[in-house]
Design a binder for these strands. Sequence first.
DNA 1: TACATTTGCTTAACGGTGTTAGATTATTTA
DNA 2: TAAATAATCTAACACCGTTAAGCAAATGTA
Lengths: 201, 201
Amino acid sequence: MGSKERILRLKDETRTKILDAALNIVQTEGWQALSMRKIADQIEYTAPIIYEYFSNKDGILLELTRRGYLILAKDIREARDKHESPEEKMEAMWIAYWNFAFAHKEFYQLMYGVDMVCCTVKNSLPEAENVGGMLGEVIESLFKKKPVSDDDICMKYYTYWSIIHGLISINLVRPNGRTTDELNQQILKDAIKGITLSINN
Amino acid sequence: MGSKERILRLKDETRTKILDAALNIVQTEGWQALSMRKIADQIEYTAPIIYEYFSNKDGILLELTRRGYLILAKDIREARDKHESPEEKMEAMWIAYWNFAFAHKEFYQLMYGVDMVCCTVKNSLPEAENVGGMLGEVIESLFKKKPVSDDDICMKYYTYWSIIHGLISINLVRPNGRTTDELNQQILKDAIKGITLSINN
DNA sequence: TACATTTGCTTAACGGTGTTAGATTATTTA
DNA sequence: TAAATAATCTAACACCGTTAAGCAAATGTA
């Protein structure tokens, strides 16, 4: 009767296999090439069984988005914990964000809709809150004046995020577009420092 | 024998009708919903005749991209010519860019691949150069030191662009996401001023 | 005017997509 | 062993972009 668990484990394994197959296709052929039949091919099933594990294609994308946020959150957390001063924390965290985007292009595209048809419902994703929360806390600690209003944090958060996301987007959509890696790093660090400085002015 | 011209004019009209229909569908239903058959329906033809006017769907998108850049270039030119000092020019131009993105969401999504599968070949588009050129010139005039290297201009150009494009992207992909219009405007102007100030420091 | 040719447009099809319903096979239970 | 349940597949639907073949009307030519 212990076979119940074995079967459940097997079901979970194929669920994971589906996600891995999807990711594999995306990494080698891009999001455009991802199709239910291709996933089925790769896991040696036919397309309809995927619907026993995910309600539809968007369900797969949502789960991958979740996976992406888990990796990102881990990276950012680690970057934060490697430094002492808020200034250093902030720079390290945003650089971790930057590195994540290029180390996991596909995830980033899925998570932030760069050059990607975004799945309609991905609001209220707990994993996403985490990232925002961590960054927000460090931003708060950058302020000298207390208390810091939510609007203050929100504004600076968006300022940081905008420039980094913008720079990433531009580079993901237009690779090899006359901007070198060094130039990007320079822009990035300059911008981070500029925003950080502007907080207490 | 003057009918030749009438016929040519008619052909041009249906070409325009195709583009208008495409834009209309996109504006009411989004890029996702744009299909050749829907365009054909709207102009009261069948799908294959579209291929007499455009080589394929990407051809239509490319032409719409061109249209978008024409509008954007006009807006930015006008913003520039309304002011005297480079600082004011710069701010006005980027705000025009910002306003364009939200006044013509669909165009912006198409042109800059926000939440949109980008058509593969849209390099070397003369209309795009214009926009970059205009902005680049004003950026150059912001520098006190002369001569200004291309790298200097390029870097500041990307810094401006990144933050604005990033802010736009975030707002286009996540509308109603707790950021108000005033907050966005504040972030935007702050960021522009910050970058402009940092040029001669 | 009569025929031939070109033009405009449609129908039908190909191979692809996401998704669902029904049939089939294999496994478990009684 | 027989019945019930689970796992899986086949077939189909409605859509997509795109192409080929054919029809019908307009045009050019004799």
